[in-house]
């Protein structure tokens, strides 16, 4: 456990001291919320801000997690990973440290969105709803950051990782239920969107707006997270350079 926090602390200090990256991490989600939430011409709802906020929350976690994979790429390129792998401490603590940092950073960004959404007139969640929203976002963050960090473990340079990130992030987002409800999607899209893990998180948060716990969606998310984390641990244990 101590190893995990040592790795977490290292990434956290480096992030906070690189001021511009903190500013960027807070401005980007705000820009998404304002420009997408307020500007898109929609007809299916009066309160698009209420509808879009869960989508932007999950998008932010998605972006933060996929971008977080580059942390491991840089550790690898710069020689840190070799030093860490030669330590007697457990190798999966490298993975868990990254998951914890990336997810925490994502949740900080999500908080910016939640606060901003309230200022923009959103009125969509009770207090227990907010707490549960954080839990769902954290679960989603764990799933995606484990995925991206393990992909990074197997890629050799930053260009390759950037290519992977570009290939995965946009399709995942646009084939999800983030921007529109299922009933206004073309039928081929709604079929894809329903099975997209990004939609699991978005649908679960939207259900909370109605005061409903969507166990099916949360369960699917949990199942995937356990699967991916277990696979990632296995990969980190057996990795060689």
């Amino acid at each position: 456990m101590n190893d995990l926090f040592a790795y977490f602390e290292r990434d956290m200090i480096r992030w906070v001291r690189g001021r511009i990256s903190v500013v960027s991490a807070l401005v980007l989600p705000a820009a998404w919320l304002i420009f997408v939430g307020l500007a898109l011409p929609t007809t299916f709802t009066e309160h698009y801000i209420d509808f879009i906020t869960p989508g932007i929350l999950v998008l932010t976690m998605l972006g933060a997690s996929l971008q977080g994979g580059s942390l491991l790429i840089f550790d690898k390129i710069l020689g840190f990973l070799n030093k860490f792998l030669a330590l007697p401490s457990s190798r999966e603590s490298i993975l868990f440290g990254k998951i914890l940092f990336i997810t925490t950073r994502g949740l900080i960004q999500a908080t910016v969105i939640l606060v901003l959404a309230l200022f923009l007139g959103a009125s969509f969640l009770s207090l227990p709803g907010v707490i549960l929203t954080y839990c769902i976002l954290a679960l989603f963050g764990v799933l995606l950051s484990a995925f991206s960090t393990t992909i990074a473990l197997h890629l050799s340079d930053h260009d390759a990782y950037a290519a992977f990130n570009a290939m995965v992030s946009m399709p995942l987002f646009f084939t999800s239920s983030a921007l529109m409800p299922y009933n206004v999607m073309p039928s081929w899209l709604s079929a894809i969107a329903y099975w997209n893990p990004v939609s699991y998180a978005i649908d679960a948060i939207r259900a909370l707006q109605e005061g409903v716990l969507a166990w099916g969606r949360i369960g699917a998310l949990l199942f995937l997270a356990v699967l991916v984390v277990a696979f990632s641990v296995w990969q980190f244990r057996k990795v060689t350079v």
Binding site: N2, D3, F5, A6, Y7, E9, R10, I13, R14, R17, G18, L78, G79, F80, N82, K83, F84, A86, L87, P88, S89
Partner: peptide, 26 residues
């Protein structure tokens, strides 16, 4: 093991760099 890449965190102090390893070695 000290690889040839010179991998120390430039945004951390010297003491923090060593402290990381002291923690990882328990």
């Amino acid at each position: 093991y000290v690889p040839q890449d010179m991998a120390v965190d430039i945004k951390l102090t010297g003491r923090e760099n060593v402290a990381l390893f002291a923690k990882l070695y328990g």
